[in-house]
Design a protein around this nucleic acid. Structure first.
Lengths: 254, 254
DNA sequence: GAGTATGCTTCCGCTGAGCGAAAGGGTGAG
DNA sequence: CTCACCCTTTCGCTCAGCGGAAGCATACTC
């Protein structure tokens, strides 16, 4: 999941973390022995630690005997300042935007060389998309990603440009082409994609700037088709982005 | 925060958890010595453990030297099945509801003798309210709380009725009166409050039932004034609640 | 400037929390 | 019945963890 220094390590703390690290979006519930295997610890050790975690509420044992991340950790996670200031501030604007367009609305930040989706709104009328809150996607195939990439520091941009993996037939994999697009993003103030991440989905996105003018996040919208009313969407996005930027608290801790 | 067995304990795991437990909504960032104090551990121990947690990304050290819950724990928390099925399913309906009313929309479940807010939508037009995602509020003073209380098991209801703390001048503190209201909730299928939690805010709420008919959550809406269009709101809520109930996955793990 | 307070980091020898092998128990398949 | 799998408990050895103490750094006072 994270940087996980892999090796079971010798400290108890690392064992505890290794056990928790065994959970990921594809493994939300694990049996004791699965936990032991995935964390690289002996069954005995796993058993002892897990029992204690469960007693504390960090893990919960389900009916079938499998363990899942418990409510205590859920609470704890919500305390993380992962853009909580940004999310709180942006929330009403996102809803306004959703109300006006009924499309899927995304709020994202850059996390290394990927896009981290901080919030997402989707109604019934919206195009189905892959992103979820907390998920990370490649930058070069998403609207918000292109915006964040265009404003990212040089090294990041180079790193991403050298790793343009294909996702759909429309994904841009030529560094030169993408680079030119990023230039246009900077000039025009918005980015767009057409079925580059998933077929049948296009997106537009704009940057969100704090009071110092620095780009701190991106605001995007996903629709089935762009040709019809891109200007309208871009305007709506820009208004919302301005509003969010203006309401942003002074110094947001990363 | 949680059941926290308080005593610093003798196992390393408990020390790790004690340190993490030092964080709560009112203490989102703590210095090393604050962590030591709040967890009841020696500064040395705290230092060692915290360093390791930070290395793993479970905690993050901010500019000022204070520690906050890190992104790793945020990710982990999102994996908790805390109504994640419910939340996912309900999300589009909540947005539909928000779009139709532009009021604050709440999705809540019962957590012991309190209401746990699982999701919340609020736009600009909405009344400011105290609730946040993840926050817990007393049951007797909120719309969703009254619904959940009305359908709660006998012991829970009795426990709550014996502890009716006053919050505003309009909070209901007489067990008999509340009890009669709960009866009406069962008969009429919705609950309401008038400035019982915060002045200037009224709410209506309805139960969400799974396919077996069991009440698994409550859906509520907060508005400045009820008199005008309560019937309309109740209808909208009921439609959404029905929809959510029908779309609910088979067996949601608590 | 010295003096004091507060917070963070490093060092080091003692010791008990943690370790895993092994054995025991429960369940379900063949 | 055996076999396979998973979970739980026991028990002696030992090394990870412990905290006192001392070393730094910053900041505020007199």
């Amino acid at each position: 999941m994270a940087g996980n220094t892999a090796q079971a390590g010798t400290t108890v703390t690392s064992r505890v973390l290794a056990i928790l690290d065994a959970f990921d979006p594809n493994h939300r519930q694990l049996s004791l022995s699965e936990l032991a295997r995935r964390s690289g610890l002996s069954l005995t050790t796993t058993h002892r630690v897990v029992a204690e975690l469960a007693a504390w509420g960090a893990l919960t044992r389900q009916a079938g005997g499998k363990y899942v991340v418990g409510r205590w950790l859920w609470d704890l996670g919500l305390l993380a300042p992962v853009q909580s200031g940004l999310r709180e501030t942006a929330s009403p604007f996102l809803h306004d935007l959703y109300g006006a367009t009924l499309a899927t609305v995304h709020l994202a930040v850059r996390d290394g060389t990927e896009v981290l989706y901080v919030d997402r709104l989707a109604g019934h009328a919206s195009v189905p998309v892959v992103s979820q809150v907390g998920s990370r996607l490649p930058m070069h195939a998403t609207g918000v990603g292109k915006v964040l990439l265009a404003y990212a520091p040089e090294p990041v941009r180079l790193a991403v440009l050298s790793q343009l993996t294909r996702i759909t037939a429309h994904t841009i994999t030529q560094p030169g082409l993408l680079s030119r697009q990023l230039g246009r993003v900077l000039r025009e103030g918005f980015a767009q994609t057409s079925e580059e991440m998933s077929l049948g989905a296009c997106s537009v996105a704009v940057p969100i700037r704090d009071r110092t003018g620095a780009v701190v996040a991106a605001l995007g919208i996903v629709v089935p088709d762009l040709r019809r009313d891109r200007p309208r969407l871009v305007s709506a996005l820009q208004v919302a982005a301005q509003g969010i930027g203006r309401s942003l608290p002074e110094a947001a801790s990363s």
